[in-house]
Every structure is written in C-alpha cells, then in structure tokens.
Amino acid sequence: MDWLYLHMPIAGMDIFWPGLVLIGFAVGVIGGFFGMGGAWMVTPGLNILGFPMAFAIGTDIAHIAGKSMVSTMRHSKFGNVDYKLGIVMLVGTMVGIECGAQIVMFLERIGRVGSVVRWVYVVFLALIAFMVFYDYFKAVQKKRAGIVEGEKGTEGITWYKTLHKIRIPPMMHFKAAGFTCSAWLPIMVSFATGVLAGFLGIGGGLLRMPALVYLVGCPTHIAVGTDLFEVMVSGLYGAFTYSLKGRIELVAVFVMLTGAAIGAQIGTVATKYSKGYGIRVAFGCAVVACMVSIILKQYKYNAAAAVIILGAIGIICAYIMAVMFKGAAQELREKKAREQAQASF
C-alpha cells in the first residue's frame, strides 16, 4: 500500500495522498458552493492526516493565498474595493497575522500547539455550526427562499455610528466606502481578524465581513471587495511568514490547490441548480463532523478521526457534484433542444 502515501520532503513524513486530494477538492467544492470559507476544514484535516499542527496551519494559510489568487483572477478588477481602507487595514491584518503566527510558534516551543489549536478549533466550529443551523431555522420559520448572505447589512444595526464618534487621531475619510472615522477602528478590526487568521490558518473573512459591515460601517458591496483584498494579502503574508518559520509543506499546498481549483468550479456551478435550504443542514453536519473528528484526534483516535472527517466531506462533495452534473446535463440538453428548434424554423 506504499503507493497511497506521498513523502513530504520537509516535514519528512508519509501522508495518505488521496486524503490530501479529497481535502483540497472538498474545500473547493464546499467553499464554492456555500460562498463561505472551506479553510476551516483544512488545518484540522491536515493535522488528522498526520501533519504537525504548525505545519498544518502554515500549509493551510499558503493554500488560501493560492486560492484567493484564483478568485482575484476571476474578479480581476476587484470591483468594489476601497483601496484606502484596504491599505489601512493591511497594517492591522499583517501585524495580526504575525501575532497569530508567533502565538503558534510559542505554543509549539512549549509543546502545546496541538491541543490548544484543536480546542480553539472546536469552539470555532461549534460557532459556525450554530450560525448555520440558526440561519436555517430562521429561514424555515420565515419560509423564505433565497440566499442568506444577501441579508447581511440589511438589518438596522448601527453600532458603527457610535464607533465613528470615537475621534482618536488620525481621522480618515474613506471615499469609496463613504464614511469618516478614526484610522484605529479599521486597524483594530483587521488586527483581531488577522490574529485569528494567523492562529487558525484561515482567511478570516467569516469574521472580517460582519465586522466591516457592523463595526466599521462599510456598505456591504464594499465590504465584500475589501474583504477579498484582505484575504489575499493575509494569505500571501501568512504564507511568507510561515515559510520563514519553516512551517510549510509546499508539495501539500500544490496538491490541495489543484484539487481546490477543480472543486471550486463544480461548487460554484452547482449553486445555479441547487434549490432549497436542506443543503445548509448538510453543511452544518459537516462542520459538526469535523468538530467531532478533532476531538477524536485530541484523544488519539487517529483512524476514527480520519474516517469521520474524510467521510463527511466526501459525502457532502458527492452530493454537490450530483447536483451540479444533473443540473448541467439538464441545461445542456435544453440548450441543444432550443438550438434544434431554432434550426428547424
């Protein structure tokens, strides 16, 4: 069974490569389909496959950098970025990432990085699961079809109005976003998300997006663009700093990126054909499965942990792929029929 294991040249271990491909692919499919990060499954997944925790985080964050390049290519013009805000936030993001990475290195020195990061992940995933299920039940209650992300920023939460009143110099006006505030507000927001991103090896969009809307007072479309910009920067800087600390495995990054690029296409196309909210529950279940497998890993049930996480993401991937291929086949059939009908006239 040796051929199933790929040698990682730096960490010096043999990794079950189909698992690596599946994780990369699943991140692409799930990330593309739900429009929210799939990176939360990469660090625990890599750790469960046998990567030391610091390597898992470094590899995850580098793969985010590569993936955000893909999406940046797609919206190459960056549509709605407030560059001034982006650059101000860059300071906070980069310092935050560095702090997060330093915390990881510190924990590694004292030999606790594995368990601490795992438990933080458990809390973090519990939160995501809660959010997903909460959204689902809310949607069921209102019996409203549609996409949840579109709702962000439409509620009347105006915390940012209070925060804008804090006048600690330097005050800055952000033209594209259309507000004036103390430069420290976006810096602090980006710092907090940066720390989390650097510590967990995620993009941080999950936290940065709502923070931009509710705390900084960005219009939603500007928040999306600016967040994308920050994800790219934080990914690239994270990749750099983790490589400098020697905690990155390039082979794994490349394998996962390839899987993610293919998966992302399937995931995004599948959104066209998917109806209803049921799939969100499946997503929540995948998050819970991921959480359970982290806990199993923590108590050294490595095989069970690997089976659960790979099984869960495998099933959800298979489901999304089925949606995509069925829908695409249908669309192509209809297109052909239309063309034939036109030709017969």
Partner: peptide
Amino acid sequence: WAVVLTAVYGC
C-alpha cells in the same frame, strides 16, 4: 519562492 510559486500557480 514559496509565496511566488503559490501565487503564480494560483493564477
């Protein structure tokens, strides 16, 4: 190299 290769491969 790691950053450049990742970025280029991503693109």
